[in-house]
Amino acid sequence: MAPHRSQVVAPLLRRESMGDAYHVLTFDVGRDLGAAPGQFLMVRGAEWGDAPLLPRPMSYLSGGPTPSILVKVVGEGTTRMARAEPGEPFSLVGPLGVPWRAPSPGRRPVLVAGGVGVAPLLFLARGLVAAGTRPVAIYGGRTKKDLPLDDDLALISDLHVTTEDGSRGQRGRVTDVLEALLAEDVEVFTCGPDRMMAAVADICARRDVPCEVSVETPMACGYGVCLGCPLPAAGGGYIYACTEGPCIDARRIDWNRPDHPPRAAGRAS
């Protein structure tokens, strides 16, 4: 069972910016709320007032008394976070959601990251290394600018990098590398854009390799109340990303149903 969630208001300890797009925010919580790799928290500036209104779900990049998150600027909330200065108070609600499942003994973990999806995988990799397993990692982005924290990942994994434009590593996609790496005794952990994870899940299913994904959806609450975070479940119905995920066996999700977002947007109801 996950540890108790709570809400704390904690000051920003530091912000490390990697260009305009990616920022690591570290908070001074003062005590360990007990986050496990793969869990997330709902983050909102305590002084934002009425807008942006909703907190933003963010995977833990690290836990402990000074937890951190990796922010990619995509809208208003993340823009505010990218400009936050040390001392600014934030409301943090966590730890939330299902963490990565424990690695299976005898299987070699392969971590597949896309862009900002690297955050929960870095947290996982640090735990694996501490427990004596150095994972294999595949990290892809459109260009070399879309690979935040690649140096950190390189230190603690056997890393393969891909970019679509060839500006770093192998030209192509993570799946090109994954196909070649898959063996009977591996298991895959992946987080990144939905279509990337769908492709990774598909390859793993065809090769009968276990695949754990960390999903991302819009969220208003983060703990099962608003019902705003569904994904199509294999076999019908929905799973809720915040309580049944974010980390979940890829086979439990129907990646190709017509109502799999974001393609469902705007279809007739």
């Binding site: 807008a51 942006p52 209104l53 208003a220």
Partner: peptide, 23 residues
């Protein structure tokens, strides 16, 4: 009730829209 297909929520200025569909 299973509710509506996603996306079900989005943020709007100082407000939000929801179409949960009474799940």
């Amino acid at each position: 009730r299973a509710g509506n297909p996603p996306e079900r929520i989005c943020e709007t200025p100082a407000s939000m829209l929801n179409a949960i569909g009474l799940a």
